[in-house]
Amino acid sequence: MLLIHCPYCEETLPEAEFAYAGQAHVIRPENPSGETDEQWEEFLFIRENPKGPHYERWRHIHGCGRFFNALRDTVSDRFYTTYKAGEPRPDLSDFLGDDA
């Protein structure tokens, strides 16, 4: 069972309090009706499936209830960091150094 740091509660807590919520930084367009079919398809269906670092969303559903973002390695399952919704995507190189 993973340990996850909730950036709102500022506590590191067992995974059981959290729910996974898919890829992060998928931004719903301001005016969806102005999107082409291709753009809409990209937004709606196309997701990354990386082996390695992944920007993703979690919700502290049994705690403060907030959605937040995380950078997690899908191989080791280790979290590099978590950050509040709306905050900029942290740079991979901050965590991986030259390997990024």
Binding site: M1, E11, L13, P14, A16, E17, I61, H62, G63, C64, G65
Partner: peptide, 22 residues
């Protein structure tokens, strides 16, 4: 409760999980 009870001192309050209930 999966969370460490020691992390909740006197006077603390949390929404958390007990068994399968929030």
């Amino acid at each position: 409760c999966p969370r460490d009870m020691a992390s909740m001192g006197e006077g603390a309050v949390r929404r958390t999980l007990f068994d399968t209930a929030t």
